[in-house]
């Protein structure tokens, strides 16, 4: 699944795509796309998730300032059904 982040959300128009890992899957996003832009593109409510970038938890207020780069490993976590039982 390819993700095209609208150029309006990015720092540079026409920036090349970079490959990173999102929830264990390789994805292409535009270089410099922010976490906030990505969540919007994916139609994910930021109030229902936690985000971990390269093993570091990113605070919600930093989503719009945190840009994604090639080779990043992003985990978007939420509450799902289940338990050990």
């Amino acid at each position: 699944m390819e993700l095209r982040i609208s150029s309006a959300a990015c720092s540079r128009d026409g920036a090349p795509d970079v490959e990173l890992m999102i929830n264990g899957k390789r994805q292409d996003v535009q270089q410099g796309a922010t976490i906030a832009a990505l969540l919007e593109e994916l139609r994910i409510d930021p109030l229902r998730v936690a985000v971990q970038l390269n093993l570091k938890i990113i605070k919600r207020e930093r989503y719009a300032q945190t840009a994604l780069h090639a080779g990043d490993r992003l985990e978007i976590i939420t509450f799902m059904a289940g338990g050990s039982g």
Binding site: N23, K25, I77, T78, F79, G82, G83
Partner: peptide, 18 residues
């Protein structure tokens, strides 16, 4: 109610537990 902590399903056609 207990919930598990898991990756978001990137397939947005699936329903959300919450």
């Amino acid at each position: 109610v207990t919930v598990a902590v898991r990756r978001v399903n990137l397939d947005r056609t699936r329903e959300s537990l919450l």
